[in-house]
Design a protein around this nucleic acid. Structure first.
Length: 638
DNA sequence: GTAGGGTTAG
């Protein structure tokens, strides 16, 4: 090798790319056959080795060789700082188009798209050689990443002038640019102009554009129309459905993918896990997990994190933690997801302990991390800790508090009964507060009996956001507590007039491979008779355990006995009754709710967990309740 | 003469 002449080294470097002995001679036992056959890209070690050799051999002045080094940097799997690439580029006395193109690429890769654009414009002004089709695709990529729509449109004029309008790569880069910048009409124009210069990537990019705009039906139409689909097309439409809340539709597409005997990729599994997490469908999530195992997907940070999140959101915090502790690679998002998961399960101390570990591992907390940390404090009632972390976030880490952080703090203070401190915090906020913050104080006013303040806030909220039904309900609850039934009906009338009826509460339970959804007083289910019989049995057994109904959460001005009936048939009671019917003795019952658990159902669930010896896990809008042996993980703090 | 595009949650 020492005797090699420039051309030979040139060949040697090129060969490195085709056959990396580092990858091929060290088989990774974790990687199954389909993955080890993926073409490897050069890593940092190879590039630095090659660079060192170039320097040792005194070939640093050979522009052709150093240009290739740049090309390797641009496609390298590991990210090297752009200034390393730039120093190589600057060492080339007469950079060619090839070298400059690769430098533009390196800047894109190094997340410095503005530098790419500057280099391109410098190239246009002073270069002897004109940009070629590669230059145009790379700089258009940079424009997309920088959301530089004006510069991108200018590049489009160069595309025409230089005669690359029919190049499919250039066209696709343009489509991608316009879609990223939400200019889907412009993208569609490029797409429609030269139908012969279209391929599967053009279609995929157009689908992404419509997904971003939330026009999921148009995206689906394109998906159906496209002449051929690849795995990315499927991934795009599936993730598009998940992003737009069409969760069941996403699952349907996955089924179709399986029927076509196509192998899903990691992105698809990650999207489906997100869908299962949002729906709270544990059985479905588990199925995706076993598919990932049977297809021998390596446990990457993103797949692992999606699994940790899915298990946490489906109520299995232990399984979630188990997987997290055994993930072979974790990134900061894995930690964030785990911290937030523990927090929503009311495991405040564990969440905070993990946060400490996160810091000692050298990770830098981000705004989401503090949402988890502050939620942990709020759920566990740790007021002074919450104040400490809020200060840590702003003073030590310089993170500007966002609405969510204020939300956690207001929640923390008001839940703990410091309602006036919470009001003060809202009043001191730099930005106008989200009505949700006031709603959170209002909720605490009701719980802690700050009736006058509650009335004031309730009226304010109704003025701020007259279409939000929740505010009317809260205010009505306060009046109900005072037994001011006339005011209760006044508020309810107002709510009806403004056409903002209370969102129907529902509870969902997954059983026998299906999702069963109940609303209060539901009689639609095919096993209604058995369910109502079970409700009666539940009533008898919990009464024997000393329970009497707390009816203050029922708003209507009705007779006591009727009130008791109304809460007896709340959707979660029906779901629990059904759960008791269809699951085995000792099995855990998992329920997903869209609204908050009412005080009475919370009490009943505790007693049922004791007398029926069942663990019951309820996920409501923002937290988990683990009922076990007569107590709840939220410590009645919600 | 060398190279290039699209999907991923939290």
């Amino acid at each position: 090798m020492l005797l090699c002449r420039p051309n030979f080294l040139f060949f040697w470097i090129s060969k490195q790319r085709l056959n990396f002995h580092f990858f091929s001679t060290l088989p990774n036992p974790r990687l199954p056959p389909p993955f080890s056959s993926l073409p490897p890209t050069p890593g940092i070690t190879q590039i630095k080795q090659a660079h060192a050799r170039i320097l040792v051999l005194g070939l640093a002045n050979d522009g052709r060789i150093t240009s290739h080094l740049l090309a390797f940097l641009a496609i390298s799997s590991s990210s090297l700082p752009s200034d390393y690439a730039l120093s190589i580029y600057n060492s080339i006395s007469h950079p060619t188009v090839f070298a400059t193109n690769n430098m533009i690429r390196c800047f894109v890769k190094g997340d410095l798209p503005r530098h790419s654009i500057s280099l391109y414009s410098h190239m246009c002004r002073s270069f002897v050689a004109a940009p070629n089709k590669h230059t145009l695709t790379f700089v258009l990529q940079a424009c997309s990443n920088a959301f530089a729509i004006r510069e991108g449109a200018q590049v489009q004029t160069h595309v025409i002038k230089l005669g690359f309008v029919k190049d499919v790569f250039v066209r696709n880069a343009l489509i991608h640019l316009y879609c990223t910048c939400c200019r889907v009409e412009s993208a569609k124009q490029v797409f429609d102009e030269v139908p012969s210069s279209r391929d599967v990537v053009s279609w995929n990019s157009m689908i992404v554009g419509f997904v971003r705009l939330g026009q999921i039906s148009v995206a689906q139409k394109l998906f159906v129309e496209m002449p051929e689909k690849d795995v990315i097309s499927w991934g795009t439409i599936i993730s598009g459905c998940v992003q737009n809340g069409e969760l069941e539709k996403a699952l349907d597409y996955f089924k179709e993918l399986g029927e076509q005997k196509l192998r899903p990729n990691e992105a698809i599994l990650v999207s489906l896990l997100a869908a299962a997490a949002q729906l709270g469908t544990l059985e479905y999530g588990k199925r995706i997990h076993s598919i990932a195992n049977s297809l021998r997907f390596p446990m990457t940070a993103s797949l692992g994190t999606a699994l940790v999140d899915m298990y946490a959101k489906c109520g299995c915090i232990d399984e979630s933690r188990f997987l997290f502790d055994r993930m072979p690679e974790k990134d900061k998002w894995s930690w964030n997801v785990m911290i937030c998961g523990l927090a929503t399960h009311g495991l405040g101390q564990e969440a905070l302990a993990l946060f400490e570990k996160f810091l000692t591992q050298g990770f830098h907390p981000v705004n989401v991390t503090f949402i988890g940390v502050l939620t942990a404090c709020s759920r566990a009632g740790l007021v002074s800790e919450g104040k400490h972390f809020f200060k840590l976030m702003t003073d030590t880490y310089g993170i500007e508090p966002e609405m969510e952080h204020y939300g956690c703090m207001v929640d923390l203070l008001s839940r703990a009964g410091f309602v006036y401190d919470a009001v003060e915090m809202i009043n001191r906020m730099p930005a106008p507060p989200d009505p949700v913050l006031w709603a959170s104080v209002l909720g605490s006013c009701q719980v802690h009996g700050f009736i006058e303040l509650g009335e004031e806030i309730g009226n304010k909220l109704i003025q701020m956001d007259p279409t939000h039904n929740g505010h009317y309900v809260q205010l009505a609850r306060i009046f109900a507590r005072l037994r001011k039934w006339e005011d209760v009906s006044k508020v309810r009338r107002l709510m009806a007039e403004r056409n903002s009826n209370k969102i129907a509460g529902w509870s969902l339970i997954e059983a026998e491979g299906r999702v069963h959804r109940f609303v209060a007083g539901d009689k639609e289910h095919e096993r209604t008779t058995e369910i109502y019989k079970m409700l009666e049995i539940m009533g008898v057994r919990i009464a024997a355990a000393g329970y009497s109904a707390n009816v203050s959460s029922v708003l209507h001005d009705i007779e006591e006995e009727e009130k008791e009936n109304a809460i007896k048939e709340h959707s979660e009671r029906l779901a629990i009754a059904f759960g008791l019917l269809v699951t085995k003795d000792g099995d855990c019952i998992r329920i997903i709710k869209n609204l908050r658990v009412c005080g009475d159902c919370h009490e009943v669930s505790k007693i049922i967990s004791l007398v029926f010896e069942r663990e019951i896990i309820v996920r409501d809008g923002s937290r988990f309740h683990h009922f076990k042996k007569g107590i709840c993980s939220c410590q009645d703090y919600w």
